[in-house]
């Protein structure tokens, strides 16, 4: 079975029309709501998107059985006023819940949270609990920078500021999937901001007491852990200077990493650095990697085939990456297919 742990919702256009409207009236017209009906939601998943074929078609092309879908992060505007953020996050989650309901064999939902800069994470815990317990979401996107580079900073993930959220995650036994949202900086595109925030998050978490205080905390880092698997020795050096403390590279195994990397070398580096038991198959497909490389005639996010072709991975390693690790981390209840 192939489980793609990192996918984003392909929503009907009406969701983004809704976003434009609330940004325009800034709440003066009231909350309103996204009016997408079932048919719109189905059509969004079955219509061609970037890459030519539909979202559902693209999953079939690589043989993905189940995909975890979350909000499209760059759209989430978490640096906006709290009220608008809450409305838009909730409407986006509603679409995701509807897609899971319509395609229960294909999707599971990972929700967004209406975290805004300066707001204590405690404020969103009731909503998170409702999403998990009542609406069937299996995890949530953990945005380390709700301020979106606006200049309003939020403490890093190793700070006790985040402890109320970690307590709730442990209580609910759910993972947080680290993924930042937009970026207001003129010199930093949002896509690079993702990678930077993941790097900041990994170093902050591992150089803190978080995993001492919450040994069962489950954190999945997007995009192969940002730059850290590549740069880990820089931080290993620091950990060696602090005699008697844990090595940074050992600490890295507290975290999980998805395979949203679009080159074989990068994937091999990730597997070798953190171990295959910490890696979850993910593609973001359709997404940033849905582009054909004219040199190879291949789509960059055909990560499935790239991993399958890594010959030093055993069949058991591949099963962990494609299936077992995701089932364990997200507590996925998936009907067993007849295995051959």
């Amino acid at each position: 079975m192939v489980i793609d742990s990192h996918g984003h919702v392909t929503a009907p256009d009406s969701l983004y029309v809704y976003k434009a409207q609330i940004l325009a009236h800034r709440g003066a017209h009231g909350r309103g709501g996204n009016l997408a009906v079932e048919e719109d939601v189905r059509e969004a998943l079955n219509s061609p998107v970037f890459g030519g074929s539909s979202h559902l078609g693209q999953l079939k092309e690589v043989g993905t059985d189940l995909q975890l879908i979350s909000p499209r992060p760059y759209q989430m505007m978490t640096s906006e006023t709290p009220r608008l953020v809450q409305w838009f996050v909730e409407e986006t989650n509603n679409i995701i819940a509807k897609q899971v309901e319509l395609y229960p064999d294909t999707f599971r939902g990972v929700c967004g949270l209406p975290l805004t800069p300066g707001v204590n994470p405690k404020a969103v815990l009731p909503y998170l609990e409702k999403c998990i317990k009542e609406r069937g979401f299996v995890g949530f996107l953990l945005n380390p920078d709700p301020g979106e580079c606006s200049g309003v900073e939020t403490p890093p993930l190793g700070d006790r500021f985040w402890y109320p959220l970690y307590e709730k995650m442990v209580e609910l036994d759910i993972p947080g999937h680290i993924h930042s949202t937009g970026c207001r900086s003129e010199r930093l595109p949002y896509s690079l901001h993702f990678i930077n925030e993941e790097s900041v998050a990994v170093v902050s978490l591992l150089n803190s007491d978080v995993f001492k205080d919450f040994p069962t905390l489950k954190i999945l880092v997007s995009h192969g852990g940002g730059a850290i698997p590549y740069q880990f020795a820089r931080f290993e050096a620091g950990s060696l200077r602090r005699k008697g403390g844990p090595r940074f590279s050992d600490q890295m195994r507290h975290l999980y990493y998805d395979t949203v990397l679009y080159s074989k070398d990068a994937l091999e580096l990730l597997f070798k650095t953190v171990g295959v038991d910490r890696c979850l198959f993910g593609t973001e497909r359709p997404g940033v990697g849905t582009v054909m490389d004219p040199r190879t005639g291949r789509w960059l996010d055909e990560t499935r085939f790239t991993i399958e072709a890594i010959d030093w991975l055993s069949a058991a390693d591949k099963k962990m990456i494609f299936e077992d690790n995701a089932k364990k981390l997200f507590n996925l209840k998936v009907p067993e297919r007849i295995a051959v």
Binding site: K60, E61, V62, G63, G297, R298, E302, R304, F305, T306, E308, A309
Partner: peptide, 10 residues
């Protein structure tokens, strides 16, 4: 379909 994709990969 994945069989076609896999052979393109190789």
């Amino acid at each position: 379909l994945p069989i076609f994709g896999a052979m393109v990969q190789y």
